[in-house]
């Protein structure tokens, strides 16, 4: 019996981004499989972060950025008339940034922020339960449960990043975008985040931009190599790191590039 091939969670076709007159992304086609971690790797300026930001329309906030081509979430267009409303899109496609950026508010309010904005649950017991669940899933609950009134900015870097992940998953997104989420963290905090990514993968689709080859190898199932605004190679992570098909990919991941 033929195996049922699942529709990709997100797709892009000919996705291009101009920053003013500069073409930063040159028409990228990529399928992002649901329930998987997709890693985007490539040298600085290759377009991987630009690509990531297209997936929840973060580029809209940059005045000179112009996006063309198609991007879909569950088959529905993200851009163009008839596209998903950007506010709803960002609730379905959450984001975690490079530097932990908790709000200067108590831990509790950081996590409750999104659910309140979208009116997901009532204040009180329901919100308490939601905050607790999000912090538990972000593996932060045990460390902060007695200090939920403490400022989020007062936590360690690794804790702050897990708080940001808790904040992102509190609104029950379907996809989580991570832009170098561990680059400001020490190896222990990094390992915690990687373990967390492994666990979250069961409930969410994750797309991660990373400069660490080893991180991409450790956490992802699919790896896409970007170079000069294009995808050079995309494949199973295991294949990319043992026998890449493209010489540029090989040069980059082995450190023989340029």
């Amino acid at each position: 019996m033929a195996e049922q091939v699942a529709e990709p969670k997100m797709t892009t076709r000919g996705l291009a981004v101009h920053y003013g007159s500069k073409l930063a992304l040159k028409g990228v086609d990529l399928d992002i499989t649901g329930g998987e971690v997709t890693a985007l790797i490539g040298p600085s300026g290759c377009g991987k972060s630009t690509f990531l930001r297209c997936l929840n329309r973060m580029n809209d906030t940059i005045a000179e950025a112009r996006v063309s081509g198609r991007a879909t979430l569950d088959g529905q267009d993200i851009y163009g008339p008839g596209g998903i409303d950007p506010v709803l899109l960002r609730a379905r496609v959450g984001m975690v940034f490079q530097r932990p950026n908790p709000f200067p508010k108590p831990i509790y309010d950081n996590v409750a922020f999104g659910p309140r904005l979208h009116g997901l649950v009532a204040e009180g017991e329901e919100m308490d339960a939601l905050v607790r669940k999000a912090l538990e899933r972000a593996s932060l609950w045990n460390e902060v449960k007695d200090n939920l009134g403490q400022q989020g900015t007062g936590l360690s870097g690794g804790q702050q990043q897990r708080l940001c992940i808790a904040r992102a998953i509190a609104v029950e997104p379907e996809v989580i975008l991570m832009d170098e989420p561990c680059s400001a963290l020490d190896p222990i905090a990094t390992a915690r985040i990687e373990e967390l990514i492994d666990e979250l993968r069961e409930s969410f689709t994750i797309v991660i931009v990373t400069h660490s080859m080893q991180q991409a190898a450790r956490v992802s199932q699919t790896t896409a190599f970007f170079h000069l605004g294009e995808i050079i190679e995309v494949g199973a992570t295991e294949q990319i790191f043992t026998a890449p098909a493209n010489d540029l990919t090989q040069g980059y991941i082995t450190g023989r590039f340029g």
Binding site: H227, L248, Q250, G251, G255, R256, F257, G258
Partner: peptide
């Protein structure tokens, strides 16, 4: 800088 060289950037690796 797009060429893939024979040598690693870190020479001691070679």
């Amino acid at each position: 800088m797009t060429a893939t060289g024979e040598h690693h950037i870190v020479k001691s690796y070679d």
